[in-house]
Design a protein around this nucleic acid. Structure first.
Lengths: 219, 219
DNA sequence: GTCTATATTGGGATAGAC
DNA sequence: GTCTATCCCAATATAGAC
């Protein structure tokens, strides 16, 4: 009761300093980008002393890495769980694989975190590449394996490219939730993601499923 | 004689100051991002005095806008020319429309400029949105019209979403020329773009062309 | 683990001579 | 239109008291 329940103005002492900093950093990184955000602004928004940011994260880059990791880790964990679960029963089709990749993003979509990932992808390679490789490299490889199983006719390298494009479409939608000259709330996030899913599915399977269908027709 | 012919270290007086600044700004914006690049660094690389940047472009934002515009304008001009040219003969199919959108990007791909566009898309909305609307808004709308003609069964709003995704895939490929854990030179730019084109084409047409084929089969 | 205070560096912008 | 010099402010980071 008492003190622990107060929420004056902003965050409170009930939330650990470290998390308050992470929350504030996330908000501002999304809003203004990494380079354009100062540690001072983060400390202010978090109602924390400037020195605390250095105490907890060492440097601005360290804070960025921690901010990213806090959000990405559960998403990737959820992806891999879903995928393993799918494969436990039988070889999943493309649609299930794609969905298992997208769903955790939709589920985690309370506010800023998708944009955070999107923003990271927009940073210069010198900043983003190492972080992205660390956070997403293994998951990417894992999905390539799953996609190969679902689409045995495709070459691995081709799937890598197509999945690469798919991620690009997703990132772009996270960054710009709606197309130009369209109101941001024209579609709900779920509806927009449904569109994205079918776009990706069509792009990934290309003519390859059509061939399959054709053979079915012939038989 | 003497002074006018010297080429000490970097660019020369033969290139107008304004262009030297633009060249340097483009290089550094691509490399480090907008916020992380200082006007001082730009002036140094251009072998120009710092004050010259303000004289010619007013502010850092003004310089960004000019840098973007210099590259985007010819690309968009080329797109619209190609598109108008296509439509002069007959109603172009999806593939031609998509190609007319991508080709100018490939052709302009001497070095940094694709990454410049990609970087702009990665900037926070407050920076990127106004610039992007100004530079690409009309072209986007124009392409929606062309796509509708090529695919009359599709709704306009759906095409807007799908084209939105397509641009996302393209931007992402400009930003990351190759998929994770793949050498950057695995494919030539042209080959990579060919992959991208078929990915986009499949995603845009979705099942809609398949329906058409089915009807053809039935008739 | 949190504060104040400060060291140190670099940023954008401008004034005014040439 | 280009230079030098400078204003003024903000940045990251750290030292040291509590």
């Amino acid at each position: 009761m008492a003190t622990s329940a107060r929420t004056d103005g902003y965050q409170k002492t009930s939330v650990p300093t470290k998390n308050r900093i992470l929350d504030a950093a996330e908000t501002l990184f999304v809003e203004k980008g990494f380079a354009a955000t100062s540690l001072r602004a983060i400390a202010d928004l978090a109602s924390v002393n400037l020195a605390a940011t250095h105490y907890h994260f060492g440097s601005k880059e360290g804070l960025l890495a921690a901010t990213i990791h806090r959000r990405v880790e559960p998403i990737n964990k959820s992806r891999l769980e879903k995928l393993n679960c799918l494969e436990a029963e039988s070889t999943p089709d493309m649609k299930s694989v794609v969905r298992s990749y997208l769903e955790p993003v939709i589920e985690s979509m309370t506010g800023t975190l998708p944009s955070l990932i999107a923003r990271l992808y927009g940073e210069p390679e010198s900043v983003s590449r190492p972080l992205l490789e660390r956070e997403f490299g293994a998951v990417f490889d894992r999905y390539i394996v799953a996609l190969q199983r679902a689409l045995p006719k495709a070459e691995e390298s081709e799937l890598r490219w197509l999945f690469h494009f798919s991620i690009g479409a997703m990132i772009h939608m996270l960054n710009f939730p709606s197309p130009p000259s369209m109101p941001p709330d024209a579609l709900t996030r779920e509806e927009a993601f449904a569109r994205l899913e079918s776009f990706i599915l069509a792009g990934l399977t290309q003519g390859m499923e059509a061939e399959l269908d054709a053979k079915v027709e012939l038989s």
